[in-house]
Amino acid sequence: MSRTRRIGITGTGGLGMHLGREFGGVEGAEIAAIADISDENRTSAGEAFDVPGAHRYEDHETMLEEADLDGVAIATPHTLHYEQTVAALERGIDTLCEKPLCTDIDDAMDLAVRAEASDTVLMVGYQRHLDPAFKAARDALETRVGEPAYITAEITQNWLSEQEGTWRTNPDLSGGGQLYDTGSHLLDVVLWTTGLTPVAVDAQMHFHDEAERVDTHAALNVTFENGAVASISVSGDTHRTHEHLHVWGEKGGFYVDGQEWDAPELAFIDDSNDYYRPHLDRWNAGNKAEVFVDLIVNGGTPPSTARDALTVTAVTEAAYESTRTGETVELDLEYEREALEQGQLQSTN
């Protein structure tokens, strides 16, 4: 029988506790250690997951050194992700890092280089890559949609009222506002389902703070290499949670729509305006913990990679720059791809 894989969790707030419950349901895995700067969080998580007191750490790197881990899940504030992920990868510990992977394009590039030059797993917590609706839309893009030409995407929620006063509205820890939080999922799924390369971003935002760092509303127009355009809207100060992704091409389109965090629905529309709603196998989709443990045991490519996260960071940072300057920001991801490939070659020599 395969031995039990030992998992550490850094950051045991709401998301860390959610991941812990997922790991608790994975056969062949155990939560062996936790790390959090909060005494209260360490106590609560340690008791909830039966982690011995000696393996409840205040410091992430101390946990990595002492706990003999097979994998670590990082669910800390966004701006801490880079250094904590580097610390895990340098020790050869497979890593699941929650989104966004980074809030700096150079850091995101560095992690992508490290991940692609190593056998150590780096999985990013964009769970829509596991959702049957988004997966089916992506898989059928060529046959049912063709080359995408026009995209609309929107997410609304009462993010501000829920998060005000927490680290998520502290830009030194969050990297920004709603765009770097739930909005990061929306940008990711636009890029991942379509496979398009963004080349320009024009954005406007409304901010909650006087320093204009914590956005509550963001509107992005994104132009892609093939000439397609996307209108992307993120709002964190509304009364209803709603998400949609609509993609149109020469053959037809697809709609993915969800309400109040319920499982989203998928519909394809053909050039005769006929609708087709496929059966979605939601029972065997798996969750992040299950997929991550399988990667630890069997290897393979994560469903959401550091390269995926790099592109999300590039678009996000361009949106903030466009808002500050009032100008359209051009992206050179071809240069970044070349730099990534060159960095990978240097890392393996």
Results as ranks from 00 to 15, higher is better:
residue 126 Y to S: 04
residue 210 E to H: 13
residue 347 S to V: 05
residue 110 D to Y: 03
residue 108 A to G: 06
residue 259 Q to M: 08
residue 341 E to Q: 13
residue 162 E to K: 15
residue 55 H to G: 00
residue 311 T to F: 11
residue 277 R to E: 15
residue 151 I to N: 08
residue 282 R to V: 08
residue 318 A to H: 02
residue 132 P to V: 12
residue 79 T to R: 14
residue 262 D to V: 00
residue 76 T to C: 12
residue 136 A to F: 00
residue 28 G to T: 09
residue 253 G to M: 06
residue 116 E to L: 07
residue 188 D to W: 01
residue 337 R to S: 09
residue 275 Y to W: 10
residue 144 R to T: 02
residue 2 S to L: 09
residue 243 E to A: 12
residue 308 D to L: 02
residue 281 D to Q: 07
residue 99 K to I: 01
residue 185 H to K: 13
residue 18 H to I: 09
residue 71 G to H: 01
residue 226 N to E: 10
residue 295 L to W: 09
residue 289 A to V: 01
residue 185 H to T: 06
residue 124 V to P: 01
residue 203 A to F: 03
residue 237 D to C: 11
residue 118 S to C: 06
residue 203 A to E: 05
residue 206 H to M: 10
residue 258 G to C: 06
residue 25 G to T: 09
residue 301 T to K: 10
residue 39 D to F: 10
residue 212 E to F: 00
residue 342 Q to L: 09
residue 324 R to I: 02
residue 146 G to I: 11
residue 209 D to C: 11
residue 207 F to G: 02
residue 101 L to G: 04
residue 99 K to V: 02
residue 34 I to C: 13
residue 138 R to L: 03
residue 16 G to P: 00
residue 97 C to G: 03
residue 123 M to F: 14
residue 90 E to L: 07
residue 131 D to V: 05
residue 124 V to C: 08
residue 168 R to A: 10
residue 248 W to E: 13
residue 320 Y to S: 05
residue 314 A to F: 07
residue 279 H to P: 03
residue 347 S to A: 15
residue 63 M to N: 04
residue 78 H to W: 05
residue 143 T to S: 15
residue 156 T to A: 13
residue 245 L to N: 09
residue 175 G to N: 06
residue 152 T to A: 04
residue 52 P to S: 11
residue 237 D to Q: 14
residue 222 V to C: 06
residue 25 G to Y: 00
residue 199 V to T: 15
residue 11 G to W: 03
residue 268 F to R: 08
residue 225 E to A: 15
residue 108 A to T: 03
residue 204 Q to L: 01
residue 132 P to W: 11
residue 112 A to N: 04
residue 7 I to C: 03
residue 70 D to W: 13
residue 84 Q to I: 00
residue 55 H to V: 02
residue 172 D to G: 07
residue 25 G to R: 15
residue 106 D to G: 08
residue 49 F to S: 02
residue 101 L to M: 14
residue 10 T to V: 15
residue 255 Y to L: 12
residue 54 A to Y: 06
residue 47 E to Y: 05
residue 223 T to E: 14
residue 162 E to I: 12
residue 339 A to Y: 12
residue 329 V to Y: 02
residue 182 T to G: 07
residue 250 E to P: 14
residue 282 R to L: 05
residue 135 K to Q: 14
residue 33 A to G: 11
residue 271 D to Y: 01
residue 95 T to Q: 07
residue 77 P to L: 10
residue 266 L to P: 10
residue 220 L to D: 13
residue 72 V to K: 12
residue 42 R to M: 08
residue 148 P to A: 04
residue 255 Y to R: 13
residue 81 H to P: 11
residue 81 H to S: 13
residue 316 T to D: 11
residue 255 Y to A: 08
residue 119 D to R: 07
residue 56 R to Q: 14
residue 234 V to W: 05
residue 138 R to P: 06
residue 280 L to M: 08
residue 331 L to M: 05
residue 208 H to C: 03
residue 107 D to L: 06
residue 29 A to T: 09
residue 105 I to M: 01
residue 57 Y to K: 07
residue 88 A to D: 02
residue 28 G to L: 05
residue 97 C to L: 01
residue 206 H to D: 15
residue 207 F to K: 03
residue 224 F to L: 11
residue 320 Y to W: 09
residue 320 Y to C: 04
residue 222 V to D: 05
residue 103 T to S: 05
residue 94 D to A: 15
residue 250 E to Q: 13
residue 10 T to P: 00
